[in-house]
Design a protein around this nucleic acid. Structure first.
Lengths: 144, 144
DNA sequence: CTAAAACCTCACATCCATGTCAGAGGCAAG
DNA sequence: CTTGCCTCTGACATGGATGTGAGGTTTTAG
């Protein structure tokens, strides 16, 4: 397929796909006229790249690791293994931090809810809008 | 305390603290000569701001939510409640994605390890360095 | 054949949190 | 008073992924 279709399939912009190639994350075969052609398999790779970006890895880091993902070999495996474990650690720490932040957010939300309820109880004024659902059961329920 | 000390306590640069104020995330009282002074309590607030940044919120979003965190009122609570729940959802999705990515990474790491072991078994050459620990027991053990 | 749509490269623009530098003033200690 | 450190404002720089536009070629549809 050509670049436009790959973009459509993956939801990644054409610009970004070219950028990935420029950064060495993505390979393409070129037709005689210079147009990029991709196999179906690259779509998965693009998805992986996106996830690694979302995980906070930089292009350079991804570029270092991807070869190892695709084809382990003596060249890459030893050094990259360390690298990957390192990133794995970073990722874990980040996740832990986010979980913590989510808890904080939950507490804040619970506080705001409680406050609103106290308003409703205290005086009939307020801004209405209250679809007064059950609130007593804390916030720990909303488990996504 | 003055800005330098707050920076030292929180580990956030002086530059960033001024930026937070500029974005309306942080308030300070000013001395006659214009120097910022902070109470001890702001350190916590700075920590919260940092975590929200780490959670992927932008200054603007944080600015919208913080007033609600500090002092719930009729003004802010109703709209901000929605906003916070929205961000909470975003955060949850993001966390789920990261967990997923970590799993992928684990698989890749396991693959690389297996490959390296196969090398050791197959031929004595290789790049040495093998502290040949137990590998048979999959990768699911490394729990952060 | 022709017009539209997709593609190419190159280059500059944007967003956002921070870094960094410059020039000026504040404040405590000698 | 002077010296040294902290702070002030303002402005420009940075990095990284992506947007955008120009100018030109290729492919496809009619």
């Amino acid at each position: 397929m050509r670049i436009g279709e790959l973009a459509a399939r993956t939801g990644v912009s054409v610009r970004s796909l070219r950028y990935y190639e420029e950064q060495g994350l993505l390979a393409s075969s070129r037709s005689a006229s210079g147009q990029r052609h991709y196999t179906d398999a690259v779509a998965e790779r693009v998805a992986l790249i996106q996830r690694l970006y979302a995980a906070g890895l930089s292009s350079r880091t991804i570029a270092e690791l991807l070869p190892c993902v695709e084809s382990p070999s003596e060249e890459n495996s030893d050094a990259s293994l360390l690298r990957m474990e390192e990133e794995r650690e970073r990722l874990s720490r980040h996740i832990a931090e986010l979980l913590d932040t989510r808890d904080t957010l939950d507490q804040v939300i619970a506080g705001a809810r409680a406050y609103r309820e106290s308003l409703v109880a205290g005086s009939g004024s307020g801004s209405g809008s209250g679809a007064g659902a059950g609130v007593g059961a804390g916030a720990k329920t909303a488990g996504r």
